[in-house]
């Protein structure tokens, strides 16, 4: 991999042909993907292998086969652990410590000196918007504030890779939006972020790429739109806003690419086969009669749709 200047790049997190067996049970099978300076979503049903994948990244498990590297170092090595920040999903912390004391203490577990840890903890909590509340006990924090503390402890030692397990759980919409912005900013600043979440529409808003795991196998990897484009066997569904939906439906059913038409409020929902040429015809229809096609909205380009099509 190389950047625009031609300088060499190493993936910040790399899975190379990784398999993991628990006795006779295979948890992961030949999984390969890489994470650069970007936000990548990790998606899969319960039991798909996400937790195993995270444990392998944290170095809590060793792969049965293949290699996991964090910032170029074997996962589980001291250098890899120093380069990794992990934000767990469980909302239980040391309630009696203040936010700053907790983050400072986490830093001390990395071997950072006491005074330096306190200063850095204050700095990172300030950056995450907890500057005014950092001296209050964690037990008095709201869910959003607690989530920030968890994120702060993952970022305080300035890792190269951040692993976020269900980071949006329990947050209100404003806090979710702010956290998504913070995560996106991390990637812009050069951190590799792997986010595991079940809330696909929220994940979609912040990620660049997605890694889909199903029954221990890597089902798909890439940008959501690209993945949808490759699903030729599945009909695309569009919502076409129109002043004259009946007239539009009559025109659409004559097209060979259209496999189904439904009426909605002042719109037509149409299912398309993978055959090309539909959008050209639609443009001609819209240009030929004012008000016939007012709005085109894809209904199944979302991560949830892609995930649904792939895992059935």
């Amino acid at each position: 991999m190389s950047d625009a200047n031609g300088a060499d790049r190493v993936p910040l997190l790399a899975f190379a042909n990784v398999s993991k067996w628990y006795g006779q049970v295979s948890a992961l099978m030949d999984v390969s993907f890489a994470v650069g300076t970007e936000v990548v979503g990790l998606v899969g049903r319960n039991g798909a292998g996400k937790t195993t994948l995270m444990k392998l990244t944290c170095g809590l498990l060793r792969p049965s086969q293949g290699k996991v590297a964090v910032a170029g170092h074997d996962a589980g090595s001291a250098t890899a652990r120093a380069a990794l920040g992990f934000c767990p999903d469980l909302d239980r912390l040391y309630e009696r410590l203040s936010g700053r004391a907790f983050v400072a203490w986490m830093l001390r577990l990395h071997g950072v000196g006491s005074a330096q840890a306190r200063a850095r903890a204050g700095e990172v909590l300030e950056q995450l918007g907890l500057g005014a509340d950092m001296h209050r006990r964690i037990g008095q924090y709201s869910k959003g504030m607690r989530q920030r503390v968890r994120l702060a402890q993952a970022l305080a030692h300035r890792p190269r890779v951040v692993l976020l397990d269900e980071p949006m759980t329990g947050l209100d919409p404003i806090a979710r939006h702010e956290l998504a912005q913070t995560i996106a900013q991390l990637a812009r600043d050069g951190v590799g972020v792997l986010v595991s979440s079940h809330v696909l529409h929220e994940l979609e808003a912040m990620i660049g790429r997605v890694v889909l795991i199903h029954q221990g196998r890597l089902l798909a990897e890439g940008r959501v739109a690209d993945l949808r484009g490759q699903l030729r066997g599945q009909p695309h569904r569009l919502r076409l806003g129109s002043e004259r939906p009946r007239e539009l439906a009559a025109a659409l059913v004559r097209l060979p690419q259209v496999v189904g038409v439904e009426f909605a409020d002042a719109a037509v929902q149409v299912a398309l086969s993978g055959e090309p040429g539909f959008y050209g015809t639609l443009t001609a229809l819209g240009a030929g009669s004012a008000g016939l096609v007012e709005e085109v909205q894809p209904l199944d380009d979302s991560l949830a749709s892609v995930f649904g099509y792939l895992v059935g």
């Binding site: 190493v10 910040l12 120093a82």
Partner: peptide, 24 residues
Amino acid sequence: MTIYGTQYRPAPYAPTSAWQRLLP
């Protein structure tokens, strides 16, 4: 190797003894 932007600076790896990390 250029993998980071201008704002964020990853911490350099500084080996620390097990005792130093267990003391807290």
